[in-house]
Design a protein around this nucleic acid. Structure first.
Lengths: 117, 117
DNA sequence: GCCTCAGATTGATATCCATCAATGTTAAGG
DNA sequence: CCTTAACATTGATGGATATCAATCTGAGGC
């Protein structure tokens, strides 16, 4: 996947008199934009950010231990973990009656790699 | 600002029998979560991602050169640049009748610093 | 089999958001 | 001033979303 932030190499040298020069750089494709937007959208909600930060910090957390810290109902927490998982940011593992979550580091690295280095 | 992703140092050693241990790590604050969510929300739309990638790649772009590449109307482009600017990701500079945009690298670095290293 | 509990799903609701037509604003050129 | 051109703002609208009560599902324990 291309870098999202990438300095342009060849600077167009037309004089730029009385008008601004048009864009010449190839931009991110629409499919790529959709995939990346999926990840950012998953992280664009304060509650999901807090859930994600807990999972990342703890290494492994079960859903039952998320409701209290974030102060949301069980269906709401389930809704948010579902979105985070759909974006490929966390992975579910069922053990007995409990559902454990952990972050998928590779997906995170993919996004940070897109933004900068 | 604290790191969003931070491995826990002290692993709680209670036996975890028949139940999952509760969360012990301090999570990201609500105000912090709101600020970070603001940035991610700005990047959570495919159109905004494309606009942002163009600005980042060109170094400097005026609004009039954004409508065609992203295929949206002038008010829509204005709406999106406003949101990106509100998140602190791009900065406006007016020269004559034109509005030029450039990315604010510091804000971007702040986000990447939060995610990984 | 039955009860209990963790969590997923559904339905309803209030809010937010992306989009664009229409209009307002501001700066340059005459 | 008057016109034109570049943006911003407003209003309207269709679609997405965050939230939770209620309900369904599935795994243990008895």
């Amino acid at each position: 996947m291309r870098r999202l932030i990438e300095a342009k190499v060849e600077s167009t040298l037309d004089a730029t008199l009385g008008a601004c020069r048009p864009v010449t750089t190839q931009m991110i494709s629409e499919e790529e934009a959709h995939d990346v937007a999926l990840v950012f959208h998953a992280l664009s909600d304060p509650v999901r950010l807090r859930i994600f930060s807990i999972i990342a910090a703890e290494g492994e957390v079960c859903s039952c231990n998320l409701e209290v810290p974030v102060g949301k109902s069980q269906p709401t927490v389930s809704h948010h973990t579902r979105i985070l998982a759909g974006a490929g940011l966390i992975a579910r593992e069922k053990r007995g009656r409990w559902t454990y979550w952990r972050v998928i580091r590779a997906r995170l690295d993919q996004v940070t790699g897109l933004l900068g280095e």
